[in-house]
Write a protein that binds this DNA or RNA. Structure first.
Lengths: 144, 144
DNA sequence: ACAGTCGTAACAGTGAAGGTTGCAACTGCC
DNA sequence: GGCAGTTGCAACCTTCACTGTTACGACTGT
């Protein structure tokens, strides 16, 4: 489906910031997070910028600047993150309008739209069951 | 998520063939289906080729050739179609390996992998609840 | 033999994601 | 006031999957 890694990287960043703060630090820099995720700091700043717009993190500028959580990991779910970084629908309709003179061409879009809405609702429900605290716990539970 | 229309077009094609056969025709051509879906016949043949490999449709060549259902619409679910046309996972991991020297970088992939597997299992379950017969019924129920 | 259709390769166009560079803006500290 | 470190963001490139298109060989009923 040409899946992307945005949700994974965003969860990685949040877990990293959360753990870093529990170790007594005030803020984390995009440079540090990028090193952990093995990517470019700008990629992290872009993603965290979207999380900031969603009210999940805050940023400070200037010397000693960086990123901090806007709320506890317990209160954040993967659904919050998903909605912050994945705007579009899971399945797309036809790129061009089907033949409206054909019975199937006419009825297919409302039919599929309805089905897809139910499926995406279930997906959102599943994402909402996982908190970032759950993620961090699982991360720390990984065998070394 | 950069969603594609493959599942939608495949469902469209199957519903079209199913309805056409109920109207007494033996086989449907990619040309006819492409007209209904407002796309190119090669696109339809490519998709139907994948459905054929999955045992959902059959094709005949030569004069009077075309496509027919390999089983009843009642026995086909959107999960069958999804697995035939969408090989990859819903969510991707990091494109490069995270820093294994970092606790988060080390544990994030198994953690997310586990979470994603549960979510995809739920998605598959939802897709399996919808048969192509359901789809065709919804298509025909659309207000004109 | 012919005509109609599938099977498939090859290529172009499009768009999203990710990576990279560059630089202005901001702010704590000296 | 100036410096240093960091974010904010624009601009551009590369890669990749999907889609559309053309072309042509393979197949088969008439």
């Amino acid at each position: 489906m040409s899946a992307n890694s945005r949700l994974t990287i965003a969860a990685h960043a949040l877990a990293w910031i959360g753990l870093y703060q529990r170790q007594g630090h005030e803020v984390a820099t995009s440079e540090q997070i990028a090193t952990s995720a093995n990517t470019n700091p700008v990629v992290i700043r872009r993603l965290l910028g979207e999380l900031r717009r969603a009210g999940l993190v805050e940023s400070r500028r200037g010397v000693g600047a960086g990123w901090s959580l806007a709320r506890e990991l317990e209160s954040m779910t993967l659904l919050d993150v998903y909605e912050a970084v994945e705007p579009g629908p899971l399945f797309a309709m036809h790129r061009t309008t089907p033949d409206q003179g054909c019975v199937v061409g006419h009825g297919i879009q409302p039919a599929m739209q309805n089905i897809y809405e139910g499926i995406e609702e279930t997906l959102r429900h599943e994402l909402a069951r996982v908190t970032l605290e759950n993620v961090l716990r699982d991360v720390l539970a990984a065998p070394r």
